[in-house]
Design a protein around this nucleic acid. Sequence first.
RNA 1: AGCGAGGUAGCUCAAUUGGCAGAGCAGGUGCCUUUGGAGCACAAGGUUAAAGGUUCGAGUCCUUUCCUCGCUGCCA
Length: 573
Amino acid sequence: MPETEPKRNFITEIIDEHNQTDRFQGRVHTRFPPEPNGYLHIGHAKSICLNFGIAQQYGGLCNLRFDDTNPAKEEQEYIHAIINDVRWLGYDWGDRLFFASDYFDQLYDMAVELIRIGRAYVDQLSPDEIRAYRGTLTEPGIESPWRERPVEENLALFAKMRAGGFQEGEAVLRAKIDMSSGNINLRDPVMYRILATPHPRTGDAWRIYPMYDFAHGQSDSLEGITHSICTLEYEAHRPLYDWYLDNIEIYHPQQIEFARLNLSHTVLSKRKLIRLVQEGYVAGWDDPRMPTISGLRRRGYTPEAIREFCDEIGLGKVKGIVALHKLEYHIRHDLNKRANRVMAVLNPLRVVIENYPEDMTEELEAINNPEDASAGARKVPFGKVLYIEREDFMEAPPRKFFRLAPGREVRLRYAYFITCREVIKDAAGEVVELRCTYDPETRGGSAPDGRRPKATLHWVSAAHAIEAEARLYDTLFTVENPDADRDQDFTAFINPQSLQVVAAALVEPSLATAQPGDRFQFERLAYFVVDADSTSERLVFNRTVTLRDQWKKQQQKQPRRRKQRRSARSQSG
RNA sequence: AGCGAGGUAGCUCAAUUGGCAGAGCAGGUGCCUUUGGAGCACAAGGUUAAAGGUUCGAGUCCUUUCCUCGCUGCCA
């Protein structure tokens, strides 16, 4: 990885201070700890880049650890997907792939130890009673009647819980802390609950499972983690994290919290993403409209662009929504350097070059990537009948429309200048064909007399073009923050136009050998990636992101401007 | 209301720990161009939530107020 400016943020500040005071003997060891209950999304990418990035920056290590303490929600499928996604993002955990379930025996021993020293007890209140006894945000809780039972009895009961002597909900192990604490996490939190569900890894070996709080800090401790970085909602859990480690008296890492990522025009909670999949709003976890890593990958995003994005949005404790166009900026920036240019016409309009010989074909040279000389050049066939983009012609062009119009000359990229001589319409009055002439002197795209058309159009040869499917994606939601409305479900804001399929786009023949995952820029249109659905008979392209379109922006701007000018005039008059 | 966290440009973050409030992106204007893309240049954008205090000097320290977010799972 290229050495860049060391990133400074509030976390590196804390680490620097630890290094100065020698708290961890200069070690930096982080971890990325997903629960395998869904696919990773761009928000996780921020955490992954942070944890692995900090470790890299300080010459330390980062573990991958699955927080698999709740078998009711977790699946093997997700474990594979997560491993695949982290690797694809470009990070390596060496031989340090761990599972919280690896520590079930040790965690059990720690719980027994807390019972022995009188800091944990088996509670037989029902779940409802526990809730009622917990108190509220403003009122203290009430101690359970089981809170003071003798150590020996607790030991026996906890063993009975483990052995299956209780049903789910009949008993839990609780830490004896403080039922009147202002921090509700400290009001005798549950350490172990009974779950009859088999575990994806430990099968039927256990009937009791540790809660997140009882598993996480100790897992960090056992792995020698120095900085346990998590999101802001765990802030109130830190005193509990510390309490367990201090009372069990084991090595004590530092928990640090940062603000999770929110991205505009999408949702980033597993609960909502799982609904999008299950209720059929998208085709699956890797639907190119999903903000999942697998969705972004299929959409054509590169790991580099995602990493750059995570790097740029920075790190803080302020919750905010990052605009989607920031992500788009980074993928354009990356693809601009690496994607070969090709010509493809999404909405074809037939053009016949009247003065071009009937059965002549020429092979014209086209640059693959003006940003990268090593990408070389290719040959593009040219003939009498071509297709151009329908939007590139207007019969009655407005003032700033520089593309093709009756009587006007434009350049066909890498080919010739053509002039529109006649417009052919069908019975309904729709333009179906343009009769043009070409200037043989302008082969390759420049004129000996130095004249320069204002527009250059992309095109394909009718005789050589390949038909392909193009899937045009837009944002999944029409509003910036689909979560913001308290009265309406986020699904009310789904964009009905988020996928538009162009069944018969025409692409240049060089694309015949394109393979799934190959990325291209369709000149003047957008970046596209070959989808996994693609076959040699039928190419399928996903639009990753459009190019910035100044013409479109202009068009949207014009009316507003005129109105402003008019109102300015009326105000001054 | 209790506990905790936060409030600096439209957005995301800086500000060498008390010393001229800056950057990227977005938006604006212009230049250039065989992608109306890319690129380049320039300008604009701020009462640092508010008030008071300490100080030669406050985004930074103190006090008060306001606003936002999280927390009452046997989820993570």
